[in-house]
Amino acid sequence: MGAKVVTITSGKGGVGKTTTTANVGVALAKDGQKVVLIDADIGLRNLDLVMGLEKYIVYDLVDVVEGRAKLRQAMIKHRQFPELYLIPAAQTRDKTAVSPADMIQLTDQLRSDFDYILIDSPAGIERGFRNAVAPADEVLIVTNPEVSAVRDADRIIGLLEANHKEPGQLIINRLKPEAVRRKEMLSPEEITDILGIKIIGIVPEDENVVPSSNTGVPVTLMEQSRAGQAFRNIARRLMGEKVPFMSLDDASGGLFKRISRLFGGG
């Protein structure tokens, strides 16, 4: 039946959509899946940087949509994983260069050759967001444990519902267990209480993430990184595996034990 199209979106900017797309994509490829990543953030392309592939770009998404390049020509093969490809966004154009129908057509061409097509959505709720979610079979909503990011996630879920899409699954990114304990940060329980959707992953704050994005080597590939482990777990859950939530909070114990209940006793 071909690839599953998974769109990673958030509403708010800067919560970690691109980092999530890169890391989950690499984790899937590492597990032997055939994966294409599509950067739908036309005009503000980033995913190629985080993947370390910027210098290999010849053609981009808009070149394909406007017929200047064949789809295969715009697909950049990852150096380490030959079954992992990136279709970069155009840097010099804007969101209107692509339509939701273009995105559906593009992903339909790719479906038969791949297992997963991950689409990195731009921030916002306008055209770029609509382009990114139009072909989605599944939507992952990235949020941070703070009120403004959760508010925007709520708006996104409402828009998905209004468009008769599944409400999606939630990734809580950059969680600091000690800040939650001090009640400075929303807890996963408080977040699901507001949003009422399933969590597919909780990614702890990890100082390895920023340097890894800068060097183009996703943290997924660092065995000892806790964020990397969390992204690998998200990839396995996407593949339908039941993966228990990792214990991130050895010192106090309590928090992540309680979280595991939110997933139905992971």
Binding site: R151, D152, D154, R155, G158, L159, E161, I194, G196
Partner: peptide, 25 residues
């Protein structure tokens, strides 16, 4: 008969009954 999420608005000249939450926003 649903939760009203952020950005949603219900206007009615009569009464309004919501079976669900009315979220912030």
């Amino acid at each position: 008969k649903r939760t009203l999420r952020s950005g949603r608005s219900v206007k009615s000249p009569g009464h309004v009954i919501i079976l669900g939450d009315v979220n912030a926003g």
